[in-house]
Design a protein around this nucleic acid. Sequence first.
DNA 1: TCAGCTAGCTAACGCTCGTAAGTATGCCCT
DNA 2: AGGGCATACTTACGAGCGTTAGCTAGCTGA
Lengths: 204, 204
Amino acid sequence: MPPTDTQSAAPEARQTVTSEAVLDAALTLFAERGYHGTALSQIAERLGIRTPSLYNHMRSKQELLETLVAATLRDVLTDFHGAVADSEDPVVQLRAATRVYALRHATHRREALVVNRDTTSLPEPALTEMRERRREHERAIRSIIMRGIECGAFAVGNAGLASFAILEMSVSIARWFREDGPRTAEQVADEYAEFALRICRYRG
Amino acid sequence: MPPTDTQSAAPEARQTVTSEAVLDAALTLFAERGYHGTALSQIAERLGIRTPSLYNHMRSKQELLETLVAATLRDVLTDFHGAVADSEDPVVQLRAATRVYALRHATHRREALVVNRDTTSLPEPALTEMRERRREHERAIRSIIMRGIECGAFAVGNAGLASFAILEMSVSIARWFREDGPRTAEQVADEYAEFALRICRYRG
DNA sequence: TCAGCTAGCTAACGCTCGTAAGTATGCCCT
DNA sequence: AGGGCATACTTACGAGCGTTAGCTAGCTGA
């Protein structure tokens, strides 16, 4: 029985850590204790290597955070554009946009927690860039709501307030969702999409 | 013109720092940079004293956090009980409970940010205690929703999901609200109370 | 007047952090 | 077979952290 060379659990296998593994370990720990609350030594320990060895896979601790946040926000926007591409109807678009956003927060809890807690710890060029991406998403949701108001599908006093409420209630899914809980991620996402329409007073 | 001895802004006045001032400075900085991202030296600097002098007003950095979180959660529950005391009607109660909760997050932004970001940094006896208080609040909201469902005022698939959504969208007010913005805290709170009823599908 | 308390100060501690430098070892390709 | 690269290691650094000890000066009340 020769050891396989992919994903082997062979006891004596000489294994090496990848950049992806470092990012994954950092993601888990940042989500658990926050960026400033996590030491590189803890990331190293989780990977079974010494702290300085991490520098074979990254440039700095800050770069880890920056990579994680940038990738997550990119994926959020990709999700969004994919979700709203199928229709011009504000009702359909708001439902789909909320659904993918809520779904992502159930299936990518760690990423969501890190982005929401630690984005402000980024150094300045990146911080503004990341804030801009979030604002872009918020503005897009808001404009869907405004179009819904114009065509009479929605009735809400202020589109900005509603878009904030919808986005942030979805974000919070990451705080309580459990994979082994009573509801699947899809069920939760569908329910939240429904909440979004209710907030905008769409009477489906 | 002899200097007054309360709140004096006299230039040469020998002023002394109070425990409340230390808590307030800590609150501001914890809210801005997080608990682990804030050094005692920064709190001291903001108060115009040297770091070790802080120990005349506190026992440790952790105690600062614990005091702030405990006081905030106590006030949240006091608010809640005051809000629901006036009526037995689930519609009235949910509106009032959401209103005071949203209002608090607009008027006490720093406290809300710290509680939501840094409660997990508390040492273990306090951590469980604080989590229990939050759960108590959530259960109380949920039970209002369940009573509303029973009496036919509300129509929502799962009361737990709805209570999470309502609480967390309110929490997020602390992230964007500005005192000098276009809407007052009361206006925002009223709007969010309305959102809560919509989520529960109350057609007022 | 003066004892005692309060609330500052300086100095110093032990620890941990992120990071750098230099070295050893094993795999891959020629 | 062996050169080079990738990846780990040990050692060490300077800085900053929270905290303690011990001292000083001013206000308060007997």
